[in-house]
Design a protein around this nucleic acid. Structure first.
Lengths: 155, 155
DNA sequence: CCTACAAGCTGAAGCGACTAGAGGTTCAAG
DNA sequence: CTTGAACCTCTAGTCGCTTCAGCTTGTAGG
């Protein structure tokens, strides 16, 4: 009876995928790159996950949704595993990431503006432009940012 | 004399890189993926670029800075090469891309908000949090977006 | 108990858009 | 003519998955 309790919550990978919204292949990938610890297996070598795995994967998913890199998540998980010493480092990671996000937003905003300008010059009309968009792209001098800090906004 | 004129503007790859702000390796990569046509070569097999290449690469760079995919750029270049028929398609590409950019901005803004919230709960203090950031990441229910449209903001 | 077939398994390759490195060749200044 | 920076090709690595091929296992119906 005490042993059966452990088994009750045990689910195969497909169920875990459904519960967490993470694809089956991605779960296997996370195991491969040491984000998710290897679960127990059935006699026939199939993965069976417990409650701990569900929680950990939910943590990972949430952090990925927030744009943390796999590497950052690995660190955060290490911190959450060791009850002492955390916090400062976790805070640093979050703050750094927030900086990244703000940077990206700023750059995307200026991209948005320039795209608006470019798209507006030739607003779908059929005639009389040959072709303002292509000209705008060819002629770097028209645009607001020139050489500035725009390159790399997407990497 | 008439022949020398052609050669005057001819530059090696390093100079092209400097002029356009595109790295040497990236230029070779663009050639490999058919964005930039293969230039003439010296006897010793080194690339020599002319004015046309400089312009085309500037176009590519600008479009990449604006976040257009290599594939979109290929289409845009095809359009700019054929003087008839362009415009509508170019406009469609730009508008679609503008939509993408706005989407990304919206999602990044909500990420920003949540990261602010998370980072603020444990604002670098040394004590008394163990650890709010990690808790926030573990506990999906605290956050604003739940299952919503946040996943995929980074892909 | 047997059979289908969905779901699981592994390992390798592919994606986009480069970047980096090894190991060799060429160009141009002194 | 020598030196060394710049160039060449080819291969592999990056990140975070996704897709595929070719199997094996688990389970529900008959």
């Amino acid at each position: 009876m005490s042993e059966r309790k452990n088994l009750e919550r045990v689910v195969p990978i497909g169920a875990l995928a459904e519960q967490t919204g993470v694809k089956v292949e991605t779960i296997r990938y996370y195991e491969q790159v040491d984000l998710l610890p290897p679960p127990e297996r059935t006699e026939g070598n199939q993965r069976r996950y417990g409650k701990r795995h569900v929680e950990r994967l939910a943590f990972i998913k949430h952090a990925r949704d927030l744009g943390f890199s796999v590497d950052s998540i690995r660190t955060l998980l290490k911190l959450s595993d060791s009850p002492t010493l955390p916090c400062d480092e976790a805070h640093a990671i979050s703050v750094a990431h927030l900086g990244d996000v703000r940077h990206k937003i700023a750059r995307l905003r200026s991209l948005e503006k320039e795209l608006e300008r470019i798209a507006a010059t030739c607003s779908g009309g059929v005639s009389a432009c040959d072709c303002a968009i292509i000209e705008a792209l060819a002629d770097h001098s028209q645009c607001a940012h020139h050489e500035s800090g725009l390159a790399g906004a997407w990497r």
